[in-house]
Design a protein around this nucleic acid. Structure first.
Lengths: 245, 245
DNA sequence: CTGTAATCTTTATGA
DNA sequence: TCATAAAGATTACAG
């Protein structure tokens, strides 16, 4: 069907099993180049980056945050990000410290929310076939050249702003979003925290807050105290400072 | 865990095995409605249509054009089309009249060209879990905008300050540390960035920086420009502002 | 990612 | 008004 022009791909040099499999293949319809890759395991074109994960490794990489780090970077660097999930069988689910819900939750999220193309295979040989089919489609059928590509930065400005704010203590995505929506920029957020004061009862017990943050819900005196200490190095409190009745 | 509001989905009435599985489940966190569906097997929302295919059926439907017909119609009718591929194991590849290449070629095509989200499972129970997870995310957890970074276990105050600073663009641990050492608190760092100005050549090209950051190494006009935009929402530059020769 | 524990804010209640 | 308790929401952490 095809020309005898060989398909060319780049494989990360740590993928030794995959490399030796290609070495031992009879048909030399695919040539690979070993290289230390930072963001993908296999590169098929400048548009397509492939991550290969064995089932067991997929599950384990959920625990540390390796999995999403890798996949998000893959997505940032290639228009088409593909995850080849190899050997997802019963063994993968046995004797592991991760719930089935977590595994399939992650898999669903990756596939239909992150828009990373998941392709399951049952073993390494089949993985090689998938890679070959993709290379064939891209390089012969669609005639795209193989080139390295430079990393475009990926986080949107709004996301990055929330990202900075999440460095604060006792803050997660929810509160971070609320703060940016209200104050627009991180600097304004910090200024708002700076200018918020803790109000005390007559007996010097913390009661609430007063200032820019007071009309937002979810931010109390504990939050203000902790973060003022981190952000500005503020001392505990000036005794008998603000008294309300 | 979550709300006790039950998740609601619609299942095609011909999916008898799936229905009875849900009937027999202990937890009633998911309610389904039987209905004769034309284009999908399971509907989770107006946006999401799911097609469920057992491995053997998947392979067989390659020969006639049933599979692609179904999937294309699924894609036409739902913004998000999901294919749950159930039980793709070795048995599927034995004694069938379709080459492995064809199977994986089709699977790759569906996944990364057709942009249909493929989610593999190993059996019907796991398929049910996937459906449940998707319904859960769509109907309850729908409002999570961005992924969050995880802060290391226990952070000293100084480390936490560096961690906040690392949210800036073009900055890593080393520069973050340098900034904190010099300016002590994140707020002082942000103020320093705010008060640093970019100096331009006669021809209005950025040349360097002037202000609190100028005597630190590793911080140039690119850094200042990018982060002023992120932190304060500053505009590009006022033309003909500062000229040096 | 999920599920559970810990923490914080806010509302309710009684002194 | 203040203090405490209960309820609701969010974050932290482990798996």
């Amino acid at each position: 069907m095809s020309k005898n022009k060989p398909l060319k791909i780049i494989i990360d040099d740590r993928e030794t099993k995959l490399c030796s499999l290609f070495d031992n293949k009879e048909d030399k319809i695919l040539e690979y180049e070993k290289e230390r890759l930072n963001v993908a395991d296999i590169i098929v074109s400048n548009e397509i980056g492939i991550e290969r994960k064995e089932g067991f490794d997929f599950v384990n990489s959920l625990t540390d945050n390796r999995l999403f780090d890798q996949l998000l970077r893959l997505k940032d660097n290639y228009n088409i990000a593909i995850l080849i999930l190899e050997g997802l069988n019963q063994n993968v689910f046995d004797n592991i410290g991760v719930s089935i819900n977590s595994i399939y939750g992650a898999l669903s999220f990756i596939s239909y929310k992150l828009h990373i193309s998941v392709i399951p295979t049952i073993n390494l040989e089949h993985t090689a076939i998938v890679i070959e089919r993709i290379a064939y489609r891209e390089q012969i059928k669609d005639d795209l050249p193989l080139m390295r590509r430079v990393a475009p930065k990926a986080l949107s400005k709004k996301d990055r702003r929330s990202f900075i704010i999440e460095g604060l203590v006792d803050i997660g995505p929810k509160k971070a979003k609320a703060l940016i929506e209200r104050f627009k920029t991180p600097y304004q957020v910090f200024k708002a925290i700076k200018h918020t004061e803790i109000v005390y009862t007559r007996t010097n017990n913390p009661k609430g807050i007063q200032g820019p943050l007071e009309d937002l819900t979810g931010f109390g005196w504990k939050f203000v105290e902790k973060n003022q200490k981190i952000l500005f190095g503020k001392k505990k409190k000036s005794p008998q400072k603000k008294i309300i009745n």
